[in-house]
C-alpha cells in the first residue's frame, strides 16, 4: 500500500506557526475552553481548537486521550462542564444531538451502530433528511411520500454500490461482517448530505484489503466538498490521507500540524510512544509497514 500514489494534500490551512490552538484560514469548527470531567478525571480540556474547512483532519492520541469524549461533546451526545463551540459560525452549546446532525454535522461511532434488525437498504434510507413520510400524519397517506421514498432509494442504492454493499441491500444489517458494518455506517451518514463528517475510528477491525477502499471513500468525501474529522490509531492511514493532524493527550491538545511535521514533534513522541522513541511513528502503528519491517529483519 505504501507504493500507492499519495493523494493530493490540502495545504496552507493555518495562519502563523502550527502550534496547539493555532488559527485556521477557514475554520469549520471553533472550540473554546471546552472541559469535561468524569468525577475526578478530566477527560477533555481543550483551550482553543479550530478544524479547517474542506480538508481532512485527523485526531490522534493514545487510548483514553479524550478523542471520543470530544466527539460526543461536539455532536451534542454529551454536554461539557464549561466551554463553547461553534459550527460554521453558529454556536452549538446546548443544541441537542439530532439538531446538530440536521445542521450537517454527522458522526459515526467507535462501536459501530448498525441497526441490526433493519435491512441494509432501510438503514440507508433512514439517513435521508427532510422526509415527508417521517411525520406521523403524512405517514398515513402514501401519496405524500411514495415518490420521495423512491428517490431516496435510488440515492441509497448508488451509495451502496459505491461501498460495494448493493448485493446485501435486502439482508438484515445483523448479517454483515464487522467491516461491512463500518462501511454501512459511513454510507448511511452520507445519506444525510453532511458538510462535516466525523468518523470515530473508521478503520478499527477492518481488514487491510478493505482499508484501501475505505481510504478512497474518505478521500472522495473531500473531493465532494465535505470536511472530514476522523479519529484513528492507524498512523499509516493518518499519514496517507490527513491534511492536518491534531494530537490529544490526557484531554489536551498537545500538538497540531501537517502529518509529516507533527509526527516528528517531541510532544507527540512523548505522548504517543513512550518507550518506542527512536522508532518511526508509522512503523509502530501502521500495520502494513510493521509487517514488512519484521520480514526484513
Amino acid at each position: 500500500m505504501s507504493n500507492n500514489e499519495t493523494p493530493q494534500k490540502t495545504t496552507g490551512l493555518h495562519i502563523g506557526k502550527a502550534e496547539p490552538g493555532c488559527k485556521k484560514n477557514d475554520p469549520m469548527l471553533v472550540i473554546d475552553h471546552v472541559k469535561k470531567t468524569f468525577g475526578g478525571l478530566t477527560a477533555v480540556d481543550v483551550e482553543h481548537l479550530e478544524i479547517p474547512k474542506g480538508a481532512i483532519t485527523a485526531l490522534i492520541g493514545p487510548n483514553g486521550a479524550g478523542k471520543t469524549t470530544l466527539f460526543n461533546l461536539l455532536t451534542g451526545f454529551d454536554s461539557p462542564d464549561t466551554g463553547t463551540w461553534s459550527f460554521l459560525g453558529k454556536s452549538l452549546s446546548g443544541i441537542p444531538s439530532f439538531k446538530v446532525a440536521q445542521m450537517g454535522q454527522v458522526r459515526t461511532f467507535q462501536l459501530t451502530k448498525a441497526l441490526s434488525l433493519l435491512t441494509v437498504l432501510d438503514n440507508m434510507k433512514l439517513g435521508a433528511k427532510d422526509q415527508a413520510g417521517e411525520s406521523i400524519w403524512k405517514a398515513l397517506i402514501p401519496g405524500f411520500w411514495k415518490k420521495q421514498d423512491k428517490d431516496i432509494e435510488v440515492k441509497a442504492l448508488e451509495l451502496l454500490k459505491r461501498f460495494k454493499l448493493e448485493e446485501k441491500q435486502a439482508d438484515f444489517a445483523a448479517s454483515l461482517s464487522g467491516g461491512q458494518r463500518k462501511l454501512l455506517e459511513m454510507a448511511r451518514a452520507l445519506m444525510t448530505d453532511p458538510v462535516l463528517v466525523m468518523l470515530d475510528e473508521p478503520m478499527a477491525g477492518v481488514n487491510p484489503a478493505l482499508t484501501q477502499s475505505l481510504l478512497e471513500h474518505v478521500l472522495n468525501l473531500k473531493k465532494d466538498g465535505m470536511t472530514v474529522l476522523f479519529v484513528e490509531h492507524d498512523m499509516h492511514m493518518v499519514r496517507h490521507i490527513a491534511d492536518w493532524v491534531v494530537v490529544m493527550a490526557e484531554g489536551k491538545v498537545v500538538a497540531e500540524g501537517p502529518p509529516d511535521v507533527v509526527m516528528k514533534e517531541q510532544a507527540v513522541i512523548d505522548a504517543y510512544l513512550g518507550a518506542h522513541q527512536d522508532t518511526d511513528l508509522g512503523v509502530v502503528t501502521g500495520r502494513i509497514d510493521t509487517i514488512n519491517e519484521e520480514k526484513n529483519k
Binding site: F98, F109, K113, L115, D122, L126, A189, T192
Partner: peptide, 28 residues
C-alpha cells in the same frame, strides 16, 4: 399504515439503537 411508512422505519430504528437515529438527525 404507520409501520410501512418512513415513520415506521424511524420507529424500528429507534428500537435498534436510538443514538444511531439521533446521529441521523431525528428527534428520537
Amino acid at each position: 399504515a404507520l409501520m410501512r411508512s418512513p415513520w415506521g422505519r424511524v420507529i424500528k430504528g429507534i428500537r435498534e439503537d436510538e443514538d444511531a437515529i439521533r446521529a441521523l438527525g431525528k428527534n428520537v
